[in-house]
Design a binder for these strands. Structure first.
Length: 663
DNA sequence: GACTAACGTTTTTTT
DNA sequence: AACGTTAGTC
């Protein structure tokens, strides 16, 4: 085993972390302190010490992070090693666990995973069914309450509001009846399986001899319980994180997991990484001065390895339009002056709504840009439709998928029939699919409708047989089916522009091609559907797209850029208005801290006097966080200062030009 | 059952 | 300002 790393290239704390492969270990890794490198080296060290790759588990926060870690291992050691290891998110891990043993909890192994709009659609139905017509609650709010309960380790049906309890119970029953689980259930049931079945738990404990959890500050109570099931004595578990970068409290993340790690695993070795290789001292000093205002943190100070640097600028703007224009203009100027590439610049914002003005300003000036985390590829209507068809081929008893595409494209099975079918399915305690197959139901329908239903059933059943029995490539079967039902022509009719037509057609082509390639490798349709449900993978990958980066503060965690613009640093936006009522101001401060520490060379914070919110102009005040920053490396300026100076520069050059011309 | 028009709501962050 | 939903009409 060739461990391609050297102790010499690491600093003292990093070496200590790499050396500590036994017992509980807590690595507190500040921003930019070489965390990923340390973790990768630590894994390489395990391999050198004779631990087999397949006995190593590394849990990451996102699928992207998992892919990156695999890549690092590949580079440092080998592709085979990287592939033999388990590197995934908690959710993916649970899918693995559950695909193997969920039958012991009374589900069938081909369970469907409902995410996002599936859940909303289901909850909407339940609202109607349970008489929530005069109910002001939105499906998202109810789902939020359910999710919150699950992630805190509570029973979702025990809610303060009785009506929410009723809906939560109905929701769980409905999922169960449809042999489906939602995103949170993956964790709930994964933990349940390990807790209630010792043999399963012991098998996993024996298999995963070394467990590493990255971004540990973002884990919730349920994930902690899962981890405790997964790791038994002598607790060879290593968690890595930074409490100062905990920004997912709203999603149930428990900073207590990292703050009181010793409560969960006894006598851990605690290692502090504070040496920052990313940013200038000006940036780090400013960041430190902000974060020290948070109470109850693990004290830590980022130490710069790069003295000095240009000051951090705080620029006041008249409005958000000027803010966007200023940034666009300056990026052009700076790119030419300092010989930078578009990719060296990033604009960070609190909410996605702030993005539009920036986009406009960049587009007007033909500056290429890439947006991270905007609209998910998998949330697009046509993609969800195609995936629903794929889901039906795998398990037609998934009602959500079936109802989604029952009349897309129009095949004469409208709302009336859909409601009848749903009613019948409940009457016979079977899925809607089985209702459609039931002669007792179809005989009630008009001849025409019955024909349509029978045709639909035959189409899905036929496709399923081709895959299950004839072992045909699922992607090809799907392609044929989509073609024969004339889905694309139907979709095209609803498109307003040529461009929209192209984008949608291309999206469908892309998703089907992905499935074809997946199937060609011999992988099952089910695992494709899992990958799709678990992936929030955005259509535009940061590496593949070029240009200036536009990104939310949340999505920026883990990234770095030479030039960072942090816009909209206003009271009500950052800290966000809602955080004040919810008492999560500290988390907003951490969010700003995360943003600041993304910058390598130069950081610019901007705030506006007015901002357009839902089409209306509103006045705003600079963020109170700005007062907390230490002034040593700060430079305050206004839009007028900068634009005024530029105007006079122009005048000056005009003046010289005219002088030369005259003489 | 499909299409159109008016209405209302949205904007915190996402595995 | 833009999208989705709903009601009303053909």
């Amino acid at each position: 085993m060739a461990g391609g790393f050297s102790f010499e290239s690491l600093n003292k704390a990093q070496r200590e972390a790499v050396g500590a492969i036994d017992g509980p270990v807590l690595i507190l890794a500040g921003a930019g302190t070489g965390k990923t490198r340390t973790v990768t080296c630590r894994i390489a060290h395990m391999l050198e010490r004779g631990i087999a790759a397949e006995n190593i588990l590394a849990v990451t926060f996102t699928n992207k992070a998992a892919a990156e870690m695999r890549e690092r291992i590949t580079d440092m050691i080998s592709k085979d090693t990287a592939e033999a290891m388990t590197v995934c998110t908690f959710h993916s891990l649970c899918v693995r666990i559950l695909r193997g043993g969920i039958d012991r909890l009374g589900y069938k192994k081909n369970f469907a995973i409902y995410t996002g709009s599936d859940q909303v659609g289901l909850m909407k139905q339940l609202l109607v069914r349970k008489g929530g017509a005069n109910c002001t609650l939105k499906p998202e709010q109810i789902l939020g309450a359910i999710s919150k309960a699950k992630n805190a380790g509570r029973d979702p049906s025990e809610q303060e509001d009785d009506f929410i309890s009723i809906l939560a119970t109905a929701y769980q029953n409905e999922l169960r009846a449809q042999n489906a689980v939602d995103f949170d259930d993956l964790l709930v049931l994964g933990e349940k399986l390990l807790t209630e079945h010792e043999d399963v738990r012991d098998a996993f404990r024996a298999y995963y001899q070394r467990v590493t959890v990255d971004e540990f500050q973002d884990t919730n109570s349920l994930q902690m319980r899962l981890l405790q099931q997964l790791v038994g004595p002598p607790y060879h578990v290593c968690v890595v994180g930074d409490d100062d970068q905990s920004i997912y409290g709203w999603r149930g993340a428990e900073v207590a997991n990292i703050l009181q790690f010793e409560k969960f695993f006894p006598n851990p070795q605690v290692i502090l990484l504070e040496e920052n290789y990313r940013s200038t001292n000006a940036v780090l000093h400013t960041a430190n001065s902000l974060i020290k205002h948070n109470i109850g943190r693990r004290p830590k100070v980022l130490i710069s390895t790069r003295a000095g640097g240009v000051p951090v600028r705080i620029v006041s703007m008249p409005g958000d339009a000027e803010e966007a224009e200023f940034i666009a203009e300056e990026i052009i100027e700076e790119k030419n002056l300092a010989k930078k590439t578009w990719e060296d610049f990033a604009v960070l914002f609190r909410t996605n709504g702030q993005c539009r003005k920036l986009e406009e300003a960049l587009r007007e000036r033909k500056i290429p840009y890439r947006m991270v985390g905007a609209q998910s590829f998998f949330d697009r209507r046509e993609i969800r439709d195609v995936i629903a068809y794929a889901q039906l081929m795998a398990a037609p008893e998934s009602d959500v998928a079936l109802l989604r595409v029952l009349n897309a494209p129009n095949r004469g099975i409208g709302q009336t029939t859909a409601v009848l079918a749903t009613d019948h399915s409940r009457a016979i305690h079977r899925s809607v699919w089985e209702a459609l197959c039931d002669p007792a139901f179809t005989s009630q329908l008009s001849t025409k409708t019955r024909g349509s239903v029978e045709e639909f059933v035959a189409m899905i059943a036929g496709a399923k047989t081709k895959i299950d029995m004839a072992k045909q490539n699922a992607g090809q079967v799907l392609r044929e089916m989509i073609h024969e039902m004339e889905y694309i022509p139907w979709l095209m009719r609803g498109c307003k522009t040529e461009k929209e037509r192209d984008v949608r057609t291309e999206g469908i082509g892309s998703i089907i091609k992905q499935l074809e390639e997946y199937s060609a490798k011999g992988k099952k349709l089910q695992s494709f559907l899992d990958a799709v449900s678990l992936s929030s993978e955005r259509e535009d990958d940061l590496e593949t797209k070029q240009g200036v980066t536009l990104i939310t503060l949340h999505a920026s965690k883990g990234l770095e850029f030479p030039y960072v613009y942090l816009v909209g640093v206003e009271e009500g936006t950052l800290p966000h208005k809602r955080s004040i009522s919810e008492g999560t101001r500290d988390e907003e401060r951490r969010l700003l801290y995360v943003g600041i520490t993304r910058a390598r060379e130069r950081l610019t914070l901007t705030y506006c006097s007015t901002r357009t919110k839902f089409g209306k102009e509103e006045g705003c005040q600079p963020s109170s966080f700005l007062d907390e920053l230490d002034g040593e490396f700060l430079q305050l300026c206004s839009y007028d200062d900068i634009m005024g100076r530029e105007a006079s520069d122009d005048e000056l050059s005009n003046f010289f030009n005219s002088m030369n011309f005259d003489s």
